[in-house]
């Protein structure tokens, strides 16, 4: 008898639940059933490619910093920070050993810290002076470049 008394509660619960989940139905069809993780266009495929891009993009950032177009510089900076963030993952997907990987991780943290300072000056109005730490970027990139030969697969 007690079980019979709870039947209306279950019905209400199920109706509410159906309403809540109704929005999910069919969502898989939105992309014709194709499921892929989004990979950003600027994500380099390998660690060597990432290091190469870092150097090139840094030069572009320096050039952009002298122009008045803030949008291009901002985009370039944010993409550069993304690449810096991906460095440990890309290095782990290479033949680098633990000690070398830890160097990459340290470099990634340092670079990210510097670029965040640069980003803060770009967003300031008027645009502020770049931090002195920017001068450390080329040696850090140089360190990463020296690791590239060791990252090629020996498997």
């Amino acid at each position: 008898m007690k079980l019979l008394r709870i039947a209306p509660f279950l019905k209400i619960g199920l109706c509410l639940q159906t309403l809540l989940v109704a929005g999910c139905a069919g969502s898989i069809d939105e992309s014709n059933g194709q499921l892929e993780h989004h990979r950003p266009d600027h994500k380099p495929p390998t660690f060597p490619a990432a290091v190469e891009q870092l150097a090139q993009r840094h030069e572009r950032i320096v050039v952009e910093s002298h122009s008045n177009e803030a949008g291009a510089l901002e985009r370039e900076l944010h993409e550069q920070m993304d690449i810096v963030n991906w460095l440990p993952e890309l290095a782990a997907d290479s033949a680098l050993k633990k000690q070398d990987w830890e160097q990459v991780q340290t470099a990634s943290k340092e670079l990210l810290n510097i670029y965040q300072q640069v980003d803060a000056t770009v967003h300031g109005s008027p645009r502020g002076e770049w931090p002195a730490a920017v001068s450390k970027i080329p040696p850090i990139v140089e360190t990463l470049t020296r690791l590239v030969p060791r990252s090629t697969d020996q498997l």
């Binding site: 639940q17 989940v21 999910c24 139905a25 969502s27 898989i28």
Partner: peptide
């Protein structure tokens, strides 16, 4: 079991 009858296959993948 009841929950599965309400949710089409893979319908929670993008939620």
């Amino acid at each position: 079991a009841l929950l599965s009858t309400l949710l089409p296959p893979g319908s929670l993948q993008r939620t």
